[in-house]
Write a protein that binds this DNA or RNA. Structure first.
Lengths: 208, 208
DNA sequence: TAGATTGTTAATCGATTAACAATC
DNA sequence: TAGATTGTTAATCGATTAACAATC
C-alpha cells in the first residue's frame, strides 16, 4: 500500500486542467472529450486520460467527461474543498500587488495576513489588510494554524524568513525572492522568478 | 548535424545555476566543484556536470570550475552578452510592480516600454517609464525589433494581446494572465500563475 | 606523485505515447 | 445497434543516475 503514489508531474498538471475546464464551463459547454480538452491546453488526449486515471474513472466511454463533475473531482483531489488562509511576507510592490490580487477567489486560497518589518509600512492598509510586524508572525502562524506562505522579501533575507516560517509550521512556500531556498523535504517550495523564466527563453531567441 | 539539440530541461536549469554561481561569487569564492554547487542548489553533482558537458568542458579535473569563468560561459550560452529590451503589456498593480522591479539589472534584461489601454492610465509615469497606449504597440515592437513581452492584462484579453504581439514579431512571452496562451510553435511562452503553483502544493498539505 | 574531481559512457529509472479492448 | 471515446496495457522514448577512466 505505498505504490499508489501519484507522480508530482501529474499533480502539477491538475490545476492547469482545472483552470481550462472552468473556462470551458464559462463558455457554456456541458461535456468535454479528452481530445477537445487537449486542444485547448496544447497537450495530448492520452496524457490527460492517463493523468486522470490515477484518481479514478471520471469519464464515460463514447461521451467524454461531464465538465462540472470533473471540476468537482479535481477540486477535491487538490484539497480545494475549503479555503486555505495564506500569509504574505514582504509588503513591497509585489507583496502589496499580491495582497490585492483578485485571482485567488474561488480557488481555495485567501490572503489572510501581510507582514513587513519596516516601521513606515507596518500598520498601513493594503486593500482590506493592515500590515503586521514580522515580530508577530511566528505566533500568528502557529495560533491560526496557517500552512501556506508567500515570500516577497529581498533575496538576502528570504532564507532566514523561510527558516522561521517552517519552524512555525508552514508547509508550503511560494517564493518570489531570487534565491533557491533550502528547507526540510516535508515542506513544499515553488519558486517564481521572472528573471529565470525569461533567461530560459533567451537561449532560443534569434539574433535580430 | 541536428542531433546536437540540447534538451529544454537542461536549458531551463542554466539560469538557476547562474543565479547561485553569482551568489557564491559574491561570497568571495573563486572556484566550485560540482558537488558543492549541487549542495547549494539542492541538485546533484552528476546532473550539473552532465548539463554543462552539453556545451563543453568548463571545469578542470581535480580542481572544479572557476566561478567567474563559468558565469561568463553560461551568460554567453543564454545570449546574455547584450541587454534585451522588453515590453510590459498591462499597467495594473502587477505590471507597474514589474516595471519598477530592480531584479532585471545585470541579467541581460530591461523593461523598455509599458502599455495599457485605459485612458486614465496612459500617459502616467511608472518609475522612469511613461505608459503608452496599446494602439501604438504593434508599431513600437516592430520598429524597435523587440522580441520579448510580459503580459499582465486580464485573462479575457490575454490571447488577443498575444496574437497581436506575435504578429508584430515577439518571440518570447512571459504570461502572468491566468489562461493558457496558444501561439505558433516558434514562439516561446512561460506561464507564471501563483494560483497554479499554490494549488499544486495544496495536494500535499496535511489536513491541519 | 597522490588526491580530487571532471567529462562521459552505460545502466536505470520514469514519463510519454501508441494502441486497443471495454463500454457508454 | 453503430460510433465515439474512455481506461489501461505494453512499447517507446528521454532523462537521471551510477560508475569510472582521464587528467588536472
Amino acid at each position: 500500500m505505498d505504490e499508489n503514489i501519484v507522480p508530482d508531474v501529474v499533480i502539477s498538471r491538475l490545476p492547469w486542467y482545472l483552470q481550462t475546464l472552468k473556462q470551458i464551463a464559462d463558455e457554456g459547454m456541458q461535456t468535454v472529450s479528452s481530445s477537445l480538452l487537449a486542444e485547448k491546453l496544447g497537450s495530448t488526449a492520452t496524457q490527460i486520460r492517463r493523468d486522470l486515471s490515477n484518481f479514478g474513472g471520471f469519464g464515460k466511454q463514447g461521451r467524454g467527461y461531464t465538465i462540472d463533475n470533473l471540476i468537482e473531482e479535481l477540486e477535491n483531489i487538490l484539497n480545494m474543498d475549503r479555503i486555505w488562509p495564506m500569509i504574505i511576507v514582504g509588503a513591497g510592490d509585489l507583496g502589496r500587488a499580491l495582497a490585492r490580487y483578485q485571482g485567488f477567489q474561488n480557488q481555495g486560497l485567501k490572503v489572510a495576513m501581510l507582514f513587513d518589518n519596516a516601521p513606515d509600512v507596518v500598520g498601513t492598509l493594503v486593500g482590506k489588510l493592515r500590515v503586521k510586524h514580522v515580530d508577530s508572525m511566528r505566533e500568528e502562524v502557529k495560533s491560526n494554524r496557517i500552512k501556506i506562505a508567500i515570500i516577497t522579501v529581498p533575496a538576502n533575507s528570504a532564507q532566514e524568513i523561510a527558516d522561521l516560517l517552517v519552524e512555525a509550521g508552514i508547509q508550503a512556500i511560494l517564493n518570489y525572492a531570487p534565491v533557491t531556498l533550502v528547507v526540510q523535504s516535508s515542506v513544499r517550495v515553488q519558486h517564481i522568478d521572472p528573471t529565470l523564466h525569461l533567461q530560459r527563453m533567451l537561449y532560443y531567441l534569434d539574433e535580430y
